[in-house]
């Protein structure tokens, strides 16, 4: 797959403050990539660099083969849709006026902008002043403008902020549709649980440093994160604790209320442990919880990770 974004050893400093520290990462065409990290991790800085709003102090960033802050920047931005964090518009204009203005700047027909507003469920608010828009409505307007001109690459910074659950679901459906159409989507967010099911790959930043990149599954595997198995065994499951297949687990099994046994099992032992549990006549129920992206993020956050950890690229 072709790399749409190539970040090569990029650092960004403001005076003595280092906001990005020798970051190297890449994004392939047709992927949904999560740019993850705490506030101040450097996510927005990466997006600003990719848009040419700021220049790297050292290193090089190429987007769709071009330098964003170079001569080709303007032509490049024609192929990019951007939704900023806390998107802001002109409060004195209506939705129609804003989308018409932005459509003209993209050299796109106003009708396309109006159709996007309708697609975003803003039909009834098109002629209302933006001052009357709720945060969610402004966010939907922000998404509509990002889609103007059908760009190849999207940078969506905290895109679900202010959206209700239904609108969030519709947003992810939209993103999947974009990917199916061959577009590349970079989503910056700290809402990991919400994002996890939709990502092809993740780039995790911490205090300006790249701590991991790759598919969530590969990163979890590389981080050696255990699977959690909960087995309901009515009666007295204490007797099981001496079983050899339980005794050699890295973390001791935990007995919870009403005969619930919680096991933290290495991914490589999951099937083995499940087989043993299934053979128990007293087993009433069993659930398997894969490690979450949030858990992975917390683990990497604690250990600090290393550059390229979990990378399968």
């Amino acid at each position: 797959m072709l790399n749409v974004i190539e970040i090569a050893d990029v650092s960004k400093r403001y005076g003595r403050a280092v906001v990005l520290d020798h970051v190297s990462a890449s994004v392939c065409r047709g992927e949904i990539v999560g740019l993850l990290g705490h506030n101040g991790a450097g996510k927005t800085t990466v997006i600003k660099l990719a848009l040419g709003l700021i220049r790297p102090s050292t290193g090089e960033i190429r987007v769709l083969g071009a330098l964003p802050d170079g001569r080709d920047g303007r032509r490049l931005r024609r192929k990019i849709g951007y939704l900023p964090e806390n998107v802001a518009f002109y409060g004195n204009l209506t939705g129609r006026e804003v989308i018409a203005y932005l459509a003209r700047l993209r050299n796109v027909a106003e009708a396309e902008g109006l159709a996007l507003l309708e697609r975003m469920g803003l039909h009834d608010a098109i002629d209302k002043g933006l001052r009357t828009y709720s945060k969610g409505m402004r966010q939907r307007l922000g998404l509509a403008q990002a889609l103007l001109g059908s760009p190849e690459l999207f940078f969506l910074d905290e895109p679900t902020t202010g959206l209700d659950p239904i609108a969030t679901q519709q947003f992810f459906e939209l993103v999947r549709g974009l990917r199916e159409a061959g577009k590349t989507i970079v989503i910056s967010s700290h809402l990991l649980a919400e994002l996890e099911a939709h990502l092809d790959r993740a780039i995790i930043l911490k205090e300006g440093r790249l701590v991991a990149q790759g598919t969530p599954a590969a990163m979890k595997k590389a981080a050696g994160m255990p699977v959690t198995i909960c087995a309901r065994l009515p009666g007295k499951p204490n007797g099981l604790l001496g079983e050899p297949w339980l005794a050699d687990l890295p973390t001791a099994p935990r007995l919870k209320e009403r005969g619930m046994l919680e096991l933290a099992v290495p991914a490589s032992r999951k099937m083995d442990v499940l087989r043993h549990l299934m053979n128990l006549p007293t087993l009433a129920d069993v659930t398997v919880k894969e490690p979450s992206l949030a858990r992975l993020y917390a683990t990497i956050g604690k250990t600090g990770g290393t550059e390229g950890d979990g990378s399968d690229a």
């Binding site: 709003l53 303007r74 931005r77 806390n86 998107v87 802001a88 932005l102 700047l105």
Partner: peptide
């Protein structure tokens, strides 16, 4: 107002 970032992300 936060609109400069958006405008400069346009082909402009």
């Amino acid at each position: 107002g936060g609109t400069l970032q958006l405008l400069l992300a346009y082909p402009l």
